[in-house]
Write a protein that binds this DNA or RNA. Sequence first.
DNA 1: CGTAACTAACTGGCCGGTCAGTCAAATATC
DNA 2: GATATTTGACTGACCGGCCAGTTAGTTACG
Lengths: 201, 201
Amino acid sequence: MSEDTTEEIMGATYCALCKHGYAALTMQNIADESGLSKAALHYHYDSKRDLLLAFLDYLLDRFRERIDAADADDPAERLAAFVDVVFTPRREDTHREFKTAVLEIKAQAPYDDGFRERLAEFDRLMHDRVRSIVADGIERGVFRGDADPDDVASFVITVMNGANARYVAVGAPVGDARRTLMAYLETQLFADGRDPEVAAE
Amino acid sequence: MSEDTTEEIMGATYCALCKHGYAALTMQNIADESGLSKAALHYHYDSKRDLLLAFLDYLLDRFRERIDAADADDPAERLAAFVDVVFTPRREDTHREFKTAVLEIKAQAPYDDGFRERLAEFDRLMHDRVRSIVADGIERGVFRGDADPDDVASFVITVMNGANARYVAVGAPVGDARRTLMAYLETQLFADGRDPEVAAE
DNA sequence: CGTAACTAACTGGCCGGTCAGTCAAATATC
DNA sequence: GATATTTGACTGACCGGCCAGTTAGTTACG
């Protein structure tokens, strides 16, 4: 399959997911968004499931690129940059819809090993990132030595999950969670007693 | 409809949801769990959606009872009791399955006003509870005066959402999130500098 | 010409919802 | 108080629509 066709199908899958959500997503929806017929999709992917797994792999690649791109020297800046990447939407217009579809997929993880595997990879990626940033900060003496990089990382990822879930379910603004999370990190990681409100900006 | 029949159907809905999940749930599944036929369910509820909305109302009632029952005098104890209620499963055996179904429903909220409304009520219930406990603690001088009850409440609810979502999606233990959350509350709410690790126990 | 990429039309299965009855218990009628 | 009528709860069979996946045939291309 050509590079173009792959991109076409992945893009169409993204649009169809945003428009209809995961639960109501049909192969026809994806076909309609692309310039292809439903049968053409089945020509390239054996099943709907296979296509969606490929889509998750596609998202994983893009996500890897984005967090790798957002880097800095100072641990505090690196952490802020990472939080930025996770909380800042790529596309403003379809943000809520996409987050919704992702949550739908997360809720399907227990029923499908392939899905669970990909989502675990996302989780691992984020967790490792935060953990290594925190560990690096401690090593350099920028962060408090009594902080546990693993615990901090788990907590950060959990808050991110919660912010998205709550945003989708009841429309709670993710910005609030982000602010409080940054304030938490300030108090948790910095040895001095900086005012969190100021430091979070 | 008799009290017994209502209870029968709600119980069957709970079991069917745990067994099949929300996405794959059929009226036949619910009928099979109850002693009734599929047509009988349609006799009592106009549609599958109506039945599920009634089920959410049923869950809301039970949840209200549970958090009202878990009370205490000391604000710190009240907060701990509330966290307990949210994190401790009613049924150990179907815990994961039920949390999964709830997440599936949360992800459907944007597509259905009725669902969203019920979930918002859950959220409001929890938020109000935490907010009033924190406000009460501050008033009594037990908690730090610079804590914002609203912010704390939002953050706590967000972490709870995240713990469940991450548990469902990748199997991350909710106990970890709970421990870190309690430690956060200790450092955030208590004026003195107690060791969070010890205080969380 | 042969292969890869594609399409239109179709198949089979599933599921929400409907419908024509059944039946026992309550209510009315004489 | 015996009989007729109504009602509420329920069932089994069925229908229409939807959707993943298939197939047989068509087009593009090297």
